[in-house]
């Protein structure tokens, strides 16, 4: 498995797409920090960009990468290696390179300009976000053999989590505005990794007080130790569940 991981990382480094993305993200982070005097404001802008771009790029990149290495995977399957080792090797290779990419591209500017709890939370939740979308991409990729269909489904999944889901929440809030919905909203938010990451970062910022009395409910929950453990757990589940399913499907799959 280690050999597969090593090969995957080497392969990703060689095709340079992720390298370019890392540079691009780092450049953007640096320019955001340099444009504004107040690093906390730049952090907010950075967050808005990261929440859109990181899930999208990690998902599409992983899907394409998986389909492109299909022949290599077929070759591996013919060797005396368990299917679990193959899929997990591929997964850890891709996920590992994403962790590396995000930690470098966001970690360095954040450490230089805003080395505090908010910066750390932004960094950690971006890493978790990218890894959970890598997991989702693996699940999508093993579901179907057709490359264009796989990429299409990936795009739909990304679009669902970053736009459709939130508009559903907004609609529900609007239609049921007379009911006490704070717990329901908390539950709904935890079914979306992007919402989870966004709320976690916002809660660490001063801006939480802006949320007023209703925001106090959220702040009380997410600001507490239990809330922190809860949200970390939810993020972990968002990473684990798709990849576990992907592995199960891959094991019994007729390649």
């Amino acid at each position: 498995m280690l050999k597969i991981i090593k090969y995957v990382i080497y392969d990703i480094l060689r095709n340079k797409i992720l390298l370019f993305f890392t540079l691009f993200l780092a450049l953007m982070a640096f320019s955001l920090f340099m444009m504004q005097d107040d690093p906390s404001k730049s952090l907010i802008s950075l967050m808005s960009i990261v929440l859109i771009i990181v899930p999208l790029v990690s998902m599409i990149f992983t899907t394409i990468y998986f389909y492109n290495s299909y022949e290599f995977i077929e070759l591996l399957v013919s060797q005396p290696i368990s299917r679990k080792a193959i899929i997990m090797g591929e997964y850890f290779g891709v996920a590992g390179s994403w962790v590396l990419s995000i930690s470098l591209s966001l970690g360095i500017p954040v450490a230089l300009y805003s080395a505090n709890a908010t910066g750390l939370i932004l960094l950690l939740s971006s890493i978790a976000l990218s890894v959970s979308f890598v997991s989702l991409a693996f699940l999508v990729s093993v579901l179907t053999r057709d490359k264009s269909r796989g990429i299409g489904i990936s795009l739909i999944v990304w679009f669902f989590f970053s736009v459709i889901y939130d508009s559903l929440i907004l609609g529900i809030l609007f239609f049921f505005s007379e009911y006490p919905l704070e717990k329901a909203v908390l539950a709904m938010a935890s079914f979306n990794p992007i919402d989870m990451a966004r709320i976690l970062i916002l809660m660490k910022m001063d801006i939480s007080a802006l949320m007023g009395l209703t925001g106090a409910v959220y702040k009380k929950f997410f600001g507490s130790g239990f809330g922190m453990i809860f949200s970390t757990l939810v993020m972990l589940l968002w990473i684990l569940i798709p990849v576990v399913f992907a592995q199960k499907i891959f094991k019994n799959k007729n390649l």
């Binding site: 967050m47 808005s48 859109i52 909203v185 966004r198 801006i207 802006l210 209703t214």
Partner: peptide
């Protein structure tokens, strides 16, 4: 204005949909 009417909608602060 939405927040004034539905205070719970603050949970969507700085999300992509709000921007749209």
């Amino acid at each position: 204005m939405l927040i004034e009417q539905v205070p719970f909608a603050v949970i969507l602060l700085r999300s992509f949909i709000v921007y749209l």
